[in-house]
């Protein structure tokens, strides 16, 4: 398991691995939005939490089709499926590797990007916390979508269509928590909901992903 994780991280870091793709996309969204809405910093600071969450979500989506596709193409997935590793473990590690290479950098970069959108000072801590709690769910749900579409050539479109509706609850509660943080309101309720969604997906979805992956390998 650890070997699979270190291999995936190593692959992501090397040439063509796609590390930084999500981060670069996030940066592009965040720098372009002020050009799009104009230089009104009060408007920007109002929409900043939503934009930051949307940017993070889309950046996450961008790298999802790589989760299994590369291993499928070169035959590693067949070999992993016949290896001693349980399929549930494989998909969990894949989701974790996706989060470490996409979600975690987004969380760490979010304060900097908040600055670009003139996010009000009280909003930083809730924003980072909401992303930290929410992005693992994005990776786990996304891994499920990737497992569903693994054998398809150019499955990216289908993957986005399948995964986006499943992302909605995470987005609603995540953005709500960040917004309440900006306005200085109590963030407990969205925080609990967000944490609940993440824990639920981590507990249940690996089994579903493993099952569909087994079907797709036939």
């Amino acid at each position: 398991m650890i070997a699979l994780l270190t291999r995936d991280l190593k692959l992501a870091m090397r040439a063509g691995g796609g590390f930084g793709l999500g981060l670069a996309f996030f940066l592009i969204v965040v720098t372009l939005v002020p050009f799009g809405v104009g230089p009104q910093s009060d408007l920007l600071s109002k929409i900043a939490p939503g934009i930051l969450w949307l940017g993070a979500l889309l950046a996450c989506l961008l790298s999802l089709d790589r989760v299994f596709a590369l291993d499928w193409e070169d035959g590693s997935l067949d070999l992993l499926a016949t290896s001693p590793l349980p399929m549930e473990g494989i998909v969990t590690i894949k989701a974790l590797a996706h989060w470490l290479t996409t979600g975690l950098p987004l969380v760490l970069a979010a304060p900097l990007f908040g600055l670009l959108l003139s996010l009000p000072t009280p909003g930083y801590a809730p924003l980072v916390l909401s992303l930290l709690l929410g992005t693992p769910a994005l990776s786990v749900i996304g891994t499920f979508g990737a497992a569903l579409t693994v054998g398809l050539k150019r499955g990216g479109l289908l993957l986005s269509l399948l995964v986006l509706p499943l992302y909605v609850p995470t987005l609603i509660f995540g953005a709500e928590m960040a917004r309440r943080g900006v306005e200085g309101l109590d963030t407990t309720t969205p925080l609990l909901m967000l944490a609940g969604i993440t824990c639920g997906t981590i507990a249940l979805l690996p089994f579903a992903s493993a099952a569909v992956l087994k079907v797709n390998l036939r």
Binding site: L4, G17, D74, G75, P84
Partner: peptide, 27 residues
């Protein structure tokens, strides 16, 4: 059992040694 199909399951950016070490630790 160990299965070897048409595709070798190699990662192009890993070296020969790294590829083998990975499979060794998986097994």
């Amino acid at each position: 059992m160990v299965y070897a199909g048409h595709a070798d399951g190699l990662k192009p950016t890993l070296t020969v040694e790294e590829n083998l070490t990975f499979w060794a630790s998986v097994f």
